[in-house]
Design a protein around this nucleic acid. Structure first.
Lengths: 177, 177
DNA sequence: AGTAGCAGTTCAGTCAATGAACCGGGTAGG
DNA sequence: CCTACCCGGTTCATTGACTGAACTGCTACT
């Protein structure tokens, strides 16, 4: 899966995409990046992913141009989504919608709103108020009716993610800067 | 990944979805099912997936209600998408679109049309002619400009898949019934 | 110097994937 | 009735990937 063309089908863009984001953990890393996670350690605590696996996934995501790694202004290492990475939002949205539909009887686990006018976004990412498809940086995400708030967050990163916030806004919770 | 809740995050429908369709090969099996593949042996020849893995994937997809297994009218075993399985079409479409966008400079590898009026479907599945989102059984799929027809199909199943056809229509190519 | 936080590595144990050979039931032909 | 073939599925030895815990090395602060 890591190597190019592990799936034989050269004529299928689905297979091609899965070469990049089809491995275990990869899409969850991307989701966290949408939610503002940027630091190696924050991915580890949020996802409980083995550090070695995270290293390998971040490396290939950077190589594929889904993330950029830079030693950021804050002094530490940061991983951020590129435009190509942001292009995965419809994929993440579609999977979340399918999961909400078939595995969350009490309603969506997370709702998306248009940050500018507060309108609810439908499953296609279209704002109920202004009718437009909202670009990623203008989307605000918040807990929905299906969100389970018993068993509350155990770490500041999860807490930050579960608070209404705009996508891509960096998480600064644990860091007092 | 096979077990429930291998991904810790209970409050994320993305993680929940990936429990079901996030394993290696699973979405490719689903894609083939959309393209009309129904037989064990056809999945093997089309995907070149190890038979043991296919057995295991089909079993869990049936268990999750994405596929149904029945000993069909034709006499053989058949795997078909359920409504829940058809609900994965937006996921498959989103991943194909991302792959087309970033890995297929010469254009989409497969185009989708509204079978009724011949209108091209956009990346949201909306018909350019009638403006509606087209339900899966009314979608016709055909090779697009990015399709590589050198290195032609080596097996009748691939040939059938690469011929314009409606989704879900069973492949009967190799079988002379 | 001394400590703390963080990105990333190392390593041994475990579990899943791979590919090729094999099994057994059903059907068709002789 | 016997044989050959097709097909779904299993078995098995090998290889490779994932896991979790401990460790390294760098930087900043005291």
């Amino acid at each position: 899966m890591t190597l190019p063309s592990t799936y034989a089908d050269r004529n299928c863009s689905l297979a091609r995409s899965l070469e990049i984001v089809g491995e275990r953990w990869t899409l969850l890393i991307v989701r966290d990046a949408f939610f503002g996670v940027r630091r190696f350690g924050d991915f580890v605590t949020q996802l409980k992913i083995p550090r070695a696996v995270l290293t390998s996934r971040l490396k290939s995501l950077v190589q594929e141009g889904v993330l950029v790694r830079d030693d950021g202004a804050t002094g530490g290492v940061e991983y951020r989504l590129t435009a190509k990475g942001e292009g995965l939002w419809p994929v993440v949205r579609a999977l979340m919608h399918w999961g909400d539909t078939f595995y969350s009887p009490s309603g969506v686990k997370r709702a998306a709103r248009h940050d500018q006018d507060g309108g609810l976004l439908d499953h296609e990412g279209r704002c109920g108020d202004c009718g437009l498809v909202i670009p990623v940086p203008e989307i605000r995400i918040e807990p929905g009716p299906g969100f389970d708030s018993t068993d509350p967050g155990h770490d500041p990163v999860s807490d930050a993610i579960n608070t209404p916030r705009r996508l891509l806004e960096p998480i600064t919770a644990s860091r007092t800067r």
